[in-house]
Nucleic acid binder design. Structure first.
Lengths: 220, 220
DNA sequence: GTTTGTGAAGTATTTCACAGCC
DNA sequence: GGCTGTGAAATACTTCACAAAC
């Protein structure tokens, strides 16, 4: 789990980033409810599942519209649609992957992207031994084809799974190719231009912040 | 990047969770500075590297002690030591891994844990074909040995890399074996007892929250 | 001259609590 | 009767700004 950038809301009055980060949680819970055939859900029930207060959920949703019905709750299917709209998830998004080592390959094989509307549409690596290989149905491209491929495929999101020492450079290249959103698995505090969104995923940071709570404690 | 639990600070007045989550960032930046031989660093310089305001850094650090020297800044080596102390990183932590699929294997091969004091000391899987295999120097154990192994190894942290459908069950088992901190890679809003810390890492949530900023924008 | 540590001020976020609607 | 939507209140977090330390 890690850092998302602070809520520098641009000119076009945007929702606070904390709120935007919660919307996908609502989406996921609603999908589950829809699957099991539930039609209506209250903010209280949703809150129970997500461990978020009902007031929080109502307030978050109310900043995008009035999606509920008093006395009844929210229509699951309807709210799903509205949230997808808000989040821009009505289209399929093509994503580039840079780095096809063990982690990159795991990501290429991960079945969780497609059903959510994300498709890894291109993969890149510097290692000439990787280039040309077909992994998960995708041919690994050399880095110098980045701009060309991203351009023709219209790709604006990327996942970076390269060693920490290479990450900043790769991120710079992606930003130069008009990529606007990056999930970074490398263990670095990367810098991006202001119009690029970055989320860094780092299990070591997650572990390190949790040990704080485990210091020398007798257990109950 | 994703959710950390809300700052329910327990009885023993703890630092706010937002602060605890930033400490590892400071640690990482300081390690780098130490490596390149830098002796002193100001909150301003540290802030530049991490994109955090100097005031924020000073305030965060001041809640644990007075580690700096006016007019000079912070001694890199000293601050490193203090932060390791605060975070409980003076010992090595053994971590259990549950799930040795593609992602689990990538984690077993990840060289980033050891230098930070985390050691994957045991691995488990339900799949009988995985059990008994040696991956990254560790023999995969069957799930029924969880309690025994965690007990004898004194393991209190775990990484969950199993399919979403299995995650809650696995997390319950871990909690029952006295695990107090879990990094969860499964795409679920898992529940844990209050004395267990959970960080969920989910690239889909990260992507979904970023598409919000990419909706229908013409590019520059 | 520089840079910390920190109250006080300023924002941001969450929760309360209830009018209004179903 | 139940549950949303929302101002107002309460908390939490961040930044300011400056006295004190070097």
């Amino acid at each position: 789990m890690e850092g998302y950038q602070k809520g520098r809301r641009g000119k076009t009055l945007e929702a606070p980033e904390v709120v935007v980060v919660r919307l996908p949680l609502y989406l996921r819970a609603l999908s589950q409810l829809a699957e099991q055939g539930t039609q209506l859900v209250s903010s209280e029930e949703l809150g129970r599942q997500l461990q978020i207060t009902p007031a929080q959920i109502r307030k978050d949703l109310s900043s995008f519209g009035r999606f509920g019905k008093q006395g009844r709750g929210y229509d699951v299917g309807h709210l799903l649609g509205e949230l997808r709209q808000v989040l821009g998830l009505t289209q399929e998004w093509s994503v580039a992957l840079v780095g096809v080592g063990r982690l990159g390959r795991a990501l290429l094989g991960y079945p969780g992207f497609r059903p959510e509307g994300f498709k890894i549409a291109a993969a890149f690596d510097v290692d000439p031994r990787q280039v040309g290989q077909v992994v998960g149905g995708i041919m690994v491209q050399p880095m110098h084809r980045l701009e060309e491929v991203l351009g023709t495929e219209g790709i604006r999101m990327a996942i970076v799974a390269v060693p920490a020492s290479q990450a900043q450079q790769v991120i710079d290249q992606l930003a130069a190719c008009n990529v606007r959103a990056i999930v970074n698995y490398a263990s670095v505090a990367a810098h991006v231009p202001p119009h690029v969104k970055l989320r860094t995923i780092d299990p070591v940071l997650a572990l390190q912040s949790m040990t704080y709570y485990l210091r020398e404690d007798a257990r109950p």
